[in-house]
């Protein structure tokens, strides 16, 4: 498998006033294309920060992040926004759906940034809602859906643009065991059936077991290069 994500000697320092808070230190990581990788580690280990850097919603203090041949640290804000819309599907812990939009409208939202026709958009939205098993809930508002259903809408929103990489920040962290299992199975299906590359942060060892590869972070450094299974 070729490497899709190359994180090279990345450091990230936050500043609180004049105080430096180093979060990641000279971290390097490769994610092969088509991989389902779990990032684990205690709170404050830097796993969400690493995820934010890979997804282009934050910038490294030093080092480079190359994704599908693009060094995203060199893109300006506008270029980065466009790159995210075309390459990243993001699944949040708390779903983060827009409450005034229906499931259909939430999923359609990222397609507003594409040149697809109305008909193509409709096909795409209905297609992904069908994949996540919510064809019969597309006119429901988020508050009319359970947590698991909301997360499935969020997954549909993440994959509707057919992104290069799917990022999950504790996607099962707010769900009960049964719903979490459904979401993990869905992500596994996206990886196996649709060949999507997935990087997921989780605290849950059971969730990590669904991934094919697990990386552990502690105090901003990768601890082992082991296989999660």
């Amino acid at each position: 498998m070729s490497t899709l994500v190359q994180v090279n000697q990345v450091s990230k320092i936050y500043y609180r006033g004049t105080i430096e808070i180093p979060v990641l230190q000279n971290l390097s990581l490769d994610v092969p294309e088509g991989e389902f990788m779990a990032l684990m580690g205690p709170s404050g280990s830097g796993k969400t920060t690493l995820l934010n850097l890979i997804s282009g919603i934050d910038r490294p203090t030093s080092g480079s992040i190359v994704i599908a041949g693009t060094d995203i640290a060199k893109l300006n804000e506008t270029q980065l926004a466009k790159w995210r819309s075309q390459n990243i599907g993001f699944i949040f812990q708390f779903y983060n759906l827009i409450p005034v939009l229906t499931a259909y409208e939430n999923v359609e939202l990222p397609l507003e940034l594409t040149n697809l026709s109305k008909k193509e958009k409709k096909q795409r939205v209905e297609g992904v809602l069908n994949i996540v098993g919510l064809s019969d809930r597309m006119d429901h508002y988020p508050k009319q859906l359970s947590g698991g259903q909301q997360q499935r809408v969020a997954i549909a929103r993440a994959i509707v643009t057919d992104p290069t990489l799917i990022i999950g920040d504790e996607p099962t962290g707010d769900l009960d065991r049964k719903s979490a299992e459904e979401i993990l199975n869905l992500m596994d299906r996206l990886n196996k059936e649709f060949k999507k590359t997935i990087v997921m942060v989780t605290h849950d060892p059971h969730a990590a077991q669904k991934a094919h590869l697990t990386r552990h972070l502690e105090k901003g450094e990768l601890m082992i290069n082991g296989d999660g299974k």
Partner: peptide, 8 residues
């Protein structure tokens, strides 16, 4: 969230 999705 909108910015994450690519909106400016």
């Amino acid at each position: 969230v909108l910015k994450t999705l690519g909106f400016t």
